[in-house]
Design a binder for these strands. Structure first.
Lengths: 126, 126
DNA sequence: GTGCTACCCGTAGATCCGTACGGGTATGAG
DNA sequence: CTCATACCCGTACGGATCTACGGGTAGCAC
């Protein structure tokens, strides 16, 4: 079924309207690459924590989230290589914080809004 | 290394502060289950499209997004079973729309904000 | 120097996810 | 009735992703 049966739209007007102001596949891919970084419990909570307390070292982060250091290590690795967090080394302790360029809308509208969402959940009718 | 070396926090105050108002692992999981549904180019664009034009049938959705019907089919299957979209069958055509209970903050603050984000991208320094 | 701590990296194994394919049902046209 | 359309489902396969582990380095204590 993968090939385009149904060559002509049922509602051409709506199709055109949707097409006109829709992110391209590339734009969407770029957007979702950020989203999928937040779409993991550990990473999301790391971001929440850093949004609240400015700066935390790896071990304290593990304590705060109650996960092992492997988990935070991996989470931080991905967030770091994506440029969403930055680190600062002092002695043998490494402190992490949100990157300066951390997308402000993401922080304002998603991080903080979603923390509310997480208290008052979703429909979930199944 | 997975076991908790480093039993005592470096900055106990910040750890406590972070811990106090942090989503639990369960809350975070619930939240990220929604996020990971949006964290896919096809699904995200499906949601964008439905947010704009109210209602579209499967074939038109495939046309608008320029993807094959298998892709939209799979995307809609997941969004549907998660309760984020609903469908209405008229003849042999199936129309989809965002569910009534579609999380309003998600729609307002994320969908619409993120479409802006997708135009003016992220730091991405690597 | 030895040893411990805080963290990082690379890799193997399990698991999850998306795609493609074959086939099925129901509606409508002729 | 037969046939095409619009859509759905189940499954198999390839690729991505997460976890756990072994091992490495830099800083500090002694």
């Amino acid at each position: 079924m993968s090939e385009p049966t149904h060559a002509h739209p049922v509602d051409p007007e709506r199709v055109a309207h949707a097409r006109s102001r829709l992110p391209s596949r590339d734009e969407a891919a770029q957007l979702t690459s950020v989203l999928s970084l937040m779409a993991d419990p550990t990473r999301a909570r790391v971001l929440f924590a850093l949004d609240m307390v400015e700066e935390l070292c790896v071990g304290d982060l593990a304590l705060a989230l109650e996960v092992n250091e492997d988990a935070v290590g991996y989470a931080l690795r991905l967030l770091r290589t994506a440029g969403l967090v930055v680190n600062r080394k002092q002695g043998r302790v490494v402190y992490y914080r949100l990157a300066d360029g951390f997308p402000e809308p993401l922080r304002e509208h998603c991080l903080r809004q979603l923390i509310v969402l997480s208290q008052t959940p979703v429909p979930d009718e199944l």
